[in-house]
Nucleic acid binder design. Structure first.
Lengths: 200, 200
DNA sequence: CGTTCTTTTGACCGTTTGGTCAAACCAAGA
DNA sequence: TCTTGGTTTGACCAAACGGTCAAAAGAACG
């Protein structure tokens, strides 16, 4: 029987995970130091290591928490729903994820850029299976004439690329747009784009 | 008068830059070590530092070389050309860049993820000016009814996102696609997408 | 051959890194 | 109040880090 966590434990573990997310999502695993995380969390380094046994443990905890919800928007794509509505709703959910959890998106991007050393088998198994399944649904819609014929895999890639871009390349987007807010325009643009592509 | 580089200098400098590109594009600046670069280049660490004075010098040289060509495809967008052809040609050029220089694309992605500490002012000045200029051209095309009305900034972002995705998220794309080659399908998909969006 | 200039290397240095540990601190209940 | 268990810390360690340097090795050319 595991002990229930005290209030202090909850607070400090949450602070460490948030600080770790800040730093890991910017600098990747190897570019991140425990001192950086400790300072961002407002703890001393030994105190940090009292809650997590190692740097890798913090990173793993973050990746696991991320993967729990990362695939949910795609899972929700329903074969029984209206095709164009299902797909534009998926785009909206993914864009909301980028807007509300940009650090998580960048953590994922960093992991992929490094060659996905921790989640490679998840990509090859869980992710591939899920995408194959949903791609089949999309292909079915196309075959039935409910949407324009498109390559379902590249359609899914395009949704990932377009939505995550606003989180991962946030600095560049803001440098170009200046004061203008990115996400309102993005939502409109993406809705327009996919309606035209799929043929509403 | 500067001395002409010897053959050995040319070979070793090229080897160092290529090795540095390999490592920096995977692990970012802070996550990369001189020993990693030295080993990948087949040189000892002191020998490496005989050709470049510091780790940062290698990184800077790579970023400068990258920026020299990075904006060229957008610069080539011609107001006098046929709008849809100009834009789809831009997409093709960017996609070719991702295919032929994926490490450079990942180096850029890493720099942006880290908050663009080295190129922030280039983004805010050179890049912003260039995008403003080309966005005005696109807006002009839309106003003249030559293409469907779209937000020109998000249109450009979408081209960046979609093309660079195949280089930056290469591991994920390949994990999902298996053996199938990504770039042929991508080229077809992107051509289809932008023709429909812009209304040919 | 000998000389000169370039290239390479082993040994080294100070700092940073991930991580340990014993001791001190502190909150809370008996 | 005292005790007990969770929490915090300063001091410390070995390894890895970016970088230096003098000396050795090698190329080039008369």
């Amino acid at each position: 029987m595991t002990k229930a966590p005290t209030r202090i434990q909850q607070r400090n573990q949450a602070a460490i995970l948030s600080a770790g997310l800040d730093v890991f999502s910017q600098y990747g695993f190897r570019g991140t130091t425990l001192d950086q995380i400790a300072e961002a969390a407002g703890l001393s380094k030994p105190n940090l290591l009292y809650y997590f046994p190692s740097k890798e443990a913090i990173h793993t905890a973050l990746l696991e928490r991320l993967l729990e919800n990362w695939l949910d928007p795609l899972k929700a794509l329903d074969a029984a729903g209206d095709p164009v509505q299902e797909l534009t709703a998926y785009v909206r959910r993914k864009l909301a994820l980028s807007k509300d959890f940009p650090r998580e998106s960048r953590l994922f991007a960093n992991e992929i850029l490094q060659g996905a050393p921790w989640i490679e088998d998840i990509l090859r198994n869980d992710l591939k299976r899920l995408v194959d399944e949903k791609a089949a649904i999309i292909q079915g819609w196309a075959d039935a004439g409910k949407i324009a014929p498109v390559d379902p895999y590249h359609l899914i890639f395009s949704i990932w690329a377009l939505t995550q871009h606003y989180a991962d390349f946030d600095v560049q987007v803001r440098a170009v747009l200046g004061d203008r807010a990115p996400y309102d325009g993005a939502a409109l643009f993406l809705d327009q784009l996919y309606r035209k592509l799929l043929g509403s």
